[in-house]
Amino acid sequence: MKIAHIILAHAQPEQLQRLANKLLHPDADSYIHIDAKQHIEAFNALRHIPHVHFVQKRVKVTWGSYSMVQATLNAFEQIIASGIQYDYINLLSGQDYPLNEASFIHQYFALHHGKQFMEFYSIYDAWHEAIPRVTKYHLINYDIRGKYKLEQVVNKLMPVRRMPRGLEPVGRSQWFTITLPAARYILHYLHDHPEVTRFFKLTWAPDEFIFQTILFNSDFRGDMVNDNLRYMDWSEAKPSPKTLTSADIPALEQSGCLFARKVNIQTDKNLLDAIDTFSHYKTMA
């Protein structure tokens, strides 16, 4: 079971090193995208960790824009160009951390081979707050002076937007684990249908549903599991999940998830130590 981990990161090199080391496995490689706004030299220590590669085509990532999608697509391209026949591509952020040893993670995906693990809630039926992302124009992706006022004018004058090609929009969390054929399909689909890319570039936070939507409207739909295997706590009702602490250890241990999001060693370094302790004793049932 060969896995390519994509890690999207922009800060905290020490924490990123710990994540890369936790993922170490003979059949795993980590492809790390460092936000192009950051100096890559700060992350040079990662080059000494086995099986770590930097994504060469870096982009400046802006929260809520298409840049997050592009960073992921660039990683897809590099992984496929490597010629290595990975079974899975696993998308993580630099603030994620495995709740299991690498061997456990590989065994898990071997047992569920061919499944796509991602959240794909219907925007119209279950994720109503995302409807304006689809129906309105958003200029977050463009560096235009006065763009938010322009957005208001455009949305008053233009008709309600509709998904191209009759796509049924689904999604929620951007983090996922999918097979190599699924990633290859996404790249080919966007290459063959540039109007889909144009649509999502005018969408707020397209990273949270572009990948799911493409696969949901394809032959991969039957293999999709509506679970991204990440533990996230949304109890604070903020745009991002709560930063986890040692107080969350019981919930993490009982979650059945493979990864925790999100963690910060500057907030609570003991949390990662505790995770390492209980993950060491977990075995595949």
Rank of each mutant, 00 (worst) to 15 (best):
R261T: 09
D35N: 03
A274S: 12
T283K: 15
F76E: 02
T197F: 01
G94P: 01
P194S: 05
V153F: 12
P132G: 08
I249Y: 01
Q56R: 14
L272A: 00
P50W: 13
K136R: 11
I105C: 05
G94L: 00
Q17I: 00
Q107V: 11
L215V: 02
Q266T: 13
I214K: 03
P159D: 10
H191M: 14
K136W: 04
L252K: 10
T135F: 02
Y142V: 06
A102S: 15
F117A: 00
G114T: 14
S246V: 07
Y137K: 09
T135H: 05
K22S: 15
Y231G: 03
Y189W: 06
I3S: 05
C257E: 11
H48V: 05
D223Y: 11
I140C: 12
H51F: 11
H51C: 08
A126W: 11
D233A: 04
Q12Y: 12
E151V: 03
M158N: 10
I7A: 10
I80K: 14
M1Y: 09
T135W: 08
N155Q: 03
V154N: 03
I79Y: 04
G222M: 04
T203P: 00
W127E: 01
K22H: 13
Q95V: 15
H193Q: 04
Q116T: 06
P164G: 09
L16C: 08
A274K: 13
P194W: 13
Y86P: 06
M232S: 14
I131F: 03
A285Q: 11
V170N: 01
Y31N: 12
Q70N: 09
L19P: 01
S30R: 08
W204E: 01
N74G: 08
H33P: 07
L73H: 01
R58K: 11
L23R: 11
Y108M: 14
Y124Q: 09
N217I: 09
S246T: 10
W234T: 03
M118C: 05
H191G: 13
A102Q: 13
Q78Y: 04
M1V: 12
K156V: 09
T72H: 07
H112K: 15
P206H: 08
H113M: 14
N100H: 15
F199C: 00
Y137G: 05
F259Q: 09
L19M: 03
L91S: 04
M224D: 00
A20L: 15
E119K: 10
D233W: 05
K242H: 12
H113A: 13
H193N: 14
I34N: 02
F211W: 06
K22C: 05
N264P: 02
D27T: 14
Y189T: 02
T283H: 15
H188Y: 04
I84R: 09
A75E: 06
A182G: 02
D27N: 14
K262S: 04
A260T: 02
H53G: 05
N21Q: 14
G166H: 06
E129T: 11
S103W: 14
M232C: 11
L99P: 15
V55N: 01
G114Q: 06
R198H: 12
M284R: 02
T203R: 00
A183D: 07
L252D: 02
A20T: 07
H113Y: 13
D268C: 04
Y31W: 15
H280P: 10
A11W: 14
T245G: 03
G171F: 04
L139G: 05
I6N: 10
Q254D: 10
V170E: 00
L46K: 02
A126I: 02
A251E: 10
